[in-house]
Design a binder for these strands. Sequence first.
DNA 1: TATTGTTATACTCTATAACTATA
DNA 2: TATAGTTATAGAGTATAACAATA
Lengths: 126, 126
Amino acid sequence: MLVQIADRSKATFAEAVTPYGLPVHLARAILLLDSPAPMRALSEHLACDRSYITGLADQLEERGLITRTPGQDRRVKLLTLTEAGQQLRDELSEAVAEQSLVLRRLNDSEREALEPLLERLLAEEG
Amino acid sequence: MLVQIADRSKATFAEAVTPYGLPVHLARAILLLDSPAPMRALSEHLACDRSYITGLADQLEERGLITRTPGQDRRVKLLTLTEAGQQLRDELSEAVAEQSLVLRRLNDSEREALEPLLERLLAEEG
DNA sequence: TATTGTTATACTCTATAACTATA
DNA sequence: TATAGTTATAGAGTATAACAATA
């Protein structure tokens, strides 16, 4: 059931996001770019290789949604949302929240009951 | 969180299953073959194309785990577990249950609390 | 005509390995 | 020497399209 729900949540996310013409991973990346972040950080959050982030960043840059700016450590590149990126991020975040299964199907007290259970499931071993 | 948990559940499933030398999809197929089923049914349960099932069935057949038997409708082929397949299915099902996050991390009352919430999340629209 | 399964092929996603530039 | 990002390439996984047999 958990896997089914997660699959649906992913599908729901994809639906919420496609009107904006963005592949899922680009949308996830934008939502993660709350503040400028090194590409390495993205690769950890998205659980993928750094080389894959390069491709995502290329696409986001082509669409004018981010810029790459060098960090204090000059090996690092910070991905920073442009103004268009910021705006899109706000819209996405609203659209995703609206469609969210958890928000649509459960009321406050149910969500409060669900959360600790999920936390236990996610807790580290031991 | 749901997505994270599901990803971990999938990873856990994969770990439980690899000692048996089976790719995840073959293992899932075997577990679904509780009783002989048309390939079409598999493709729906696994949410993939029929042409992909052909490949899975080929592999399962090579390993001597299933046979293809024609159905009453002679277009249909029923996938049926061989004796070896049955046995492997039993072992798999035990191994998977043992590793399950939900069984390992939650006690009975917690599982009872979780289930109705998940059911609401999965409920059809309306 | 529509459906089941098959075949061949092509595409998408993602990782690996080798590279550069810094540290 | 180790790390961040890049590049080119390869592989896994999966779909599409055309087809044969049956309904």
